[in-house]
C-alpha cells in the first residue's frame, strides 16, 4: 500500500507526473486529465506514473485500434476537412442571410435549421470548425512554446532563475486557469488572437513545469553525462541532447490537453470574449442561439454537439496515443 501514498495538493511536485496533474486544473478538463491526476497520486516517480500503472491498464492497450478509436479518427477527419475546406461540406455561405426563412426547424433544405437571420445553421457549423480548432490548437501552441521556453530557461539559467520561475508558476497554478485566462482577456480585450494568448498563457505554467522536470531527468541520464565527459561544450550538449529528449512527453501532454483547450476557447467565445459576431464560432453561435432555442431547437443543439464530438474524439485518440507512448518509454526511462 505504501506506494499509493497520496501527495497533498499544494505540496510541490517537481516530477513530471505531478506537473501534468496540476496544470490540468487549468481549464476545464479532458477525459484523460482525470487519469493524469490519479497517476499523480503516486509518488513513485521512477515509473512514468501518469495513467495506468496497474497491469490491467497496460493490457488494455491492444495492438490494433478498437472501434472507438476508429470512430474518433473519422470524426477528427471530418472536422479537419471542415476546417481546411469548408466549402466542400457546407451548403451555402455561412453569412448568407435569408430573413424569409428565419428560425426554421431542421428540414431537407436546412438539415440543422436556420438562425434568427435565416442563415443556414449546418453551413455555419461547418465553417465554424476552422475558428474553433484554430482557437484551441493555437492556444495549445502558445502554451507549449511559452511553457517549453520557460521550463528550459529554468533548467539552463542557474539556480536563482530556476527558483524564480518555479515560485511564479507555483502562484500561477494555485488558482483556477479560466480565471487567469479571463484576467488576461480583460487586459488584452476580446478577440480570437487575444483569447488564444489568454488560454495559452493560463496553461503555460503547467507545461513549463513538465519540461523542467523532464529536462532535469534527461540531464542526469547516462548519454548526457557521457557527452559532458567527452568534453563537448555544455551549451551544445543542452541543445542537442537535453532539449530534444525533453520534448516528447510535452507533445503527448499537449494532445491530451487539446480537448480542454478547445472547451476553454469556445467558453470564452460563449462569453463574447473570443471571435466576434458574425463569426460562426461554435461557442459564440450557442450564445447567440440561446435566446431563440424555443423557436428553432437546432440552434441550441448542433453547435454544442460539434464541440462535444470533437473533444470526445480528441480525448479518445489522445488517451490511446498517450498509452502507447507510455508503453514505449517504460524501459526507456532509467
Amino acid at each position: 500500500m505504501t506506494d499509493r501514498l497520496p501527495v497533498p495538493i499544494g505540496s510541490r511536485g517537481e516530477g513530471p507526473a505531478m506537473t501534468a496533474a496540476k496544470s490540468e486544473t487549468a481549464v476545464q478538463d479532458a477525459a484523460t486529465g482525470a487519469r493524469e491526476r490519479t497517476g499523480a497520486v503516486s509518488p513513485d516517480r521512477r515509473a512514468p506514473s501518469r495513467g495506468g500503472t496497474r497491469p490491467a491498464a497496460r493490457r488494455a492497450v491492444p495492438r490494433l485500434p478498437g472501434a472507438g478509436t476508429v470512430i474518433a479518427s473519422l470524426v477528427l477527419a471530418v472536422v479537419a476537412v471542415a476546417a481546411v475546406w469548408p466549402e466542400l461540406l457546407a451548403l451555402r455561405a455561412p453569412d448568407q442571410v435569408d430573413p424569409v426563412h428565419a428560425l426554421q426547424g431542421p428540414d431537407g433544405a436546412h438539415p440543422f435549421g436556420t438562425d434568427q437571420l435565416g442563415r443556414d445553421v449546418f453551413s455555419r457549423v461547418v465553417h465554424g470548425a476552422r475558428l474553433t480548432i484554430t482557437l484551441g490548437l493555437g492556444s495549445v501552441v502558445v502554451a507549449v512554446v511559452a511553457g517549453t521556453l520557460l521550463g528550459l530557461l529554468a533548467v539552463a539559467g542557474g539556480r536563482v532563475l530556476d527558483e524564480v520561475v518555479m515560485r511564479v508558476t507555483d502562484v500561477l497554478m494555485a488558482f483556477p486557469g479560466l480565471l487567469l485566462a479571463l484576467l488576461v482577456v480583460a487586459v488584452l480585450g476580446p478577440g480570437t488572437t487575444n483569447a488564444m494568448i489568454a488560454i495559452g498563457a493560463a496553461s503555460a505554467p503547467g507545461f513549463a513545469r513538465l519540461v523542467r522536470g523532464q529536462a532535469l531527468v534527461v540531464r542526469e541520464s547516462g548519454y548526457v553525462q557521457a557527452a559532458v565527459v567527452l568534453g563537448l561544450p555544455r551549451f551544445s550538449v543542452f541543445l542537442r541532447h537535453v532539449v530534444p529528449n525533453s520534448l516528447p512527453p510535452v507533445l503527448v501532454f499537449a494532445t491530451v490537453h487539446t480537448g480542454s483547450a478547445i472547451i476553454a476557447g469556445s467558453s470564452l467565445s460563449f462569453l463574447g470574449l473570443g471571435p466576434q459576431a458574425p463569426a460562426p464560432e461554435w461557442g459564440a453561435m450557442l450564445s447567440e442561439g440561446r435566446d431563440y432555442v424555443d423557436l428553432s431547437w437546432g440552434l441550441g443543439v448542433f453547435p454544442g454537439l460539434a464541440v462535444t464530438a470533437t473533444v470526445v474524439a480528441i480525448n479518445v485518440v489522445g488517451t490511446r496515443l498517450r498509452r502507447r507512448f507510455e508503453g514505449r518509454t517504460t524501459h526507456g526511462e532509467h
Binding site: Q28, D29, A30, A31, G33, A34, G259, I263, S266, S267, F270, G283, L286, S287, P303, G304, L305, V307, T308, V311, V312, N315
Partner: peptide
C-alpha cells in the same frame, strides 16, 4: 460529460 462544454 467531461467533453461537453458546460454552456452547452
Amino acid at each position: 460529460t467531461i467533453s461537453a462544454p458546460a454552456f452547452w
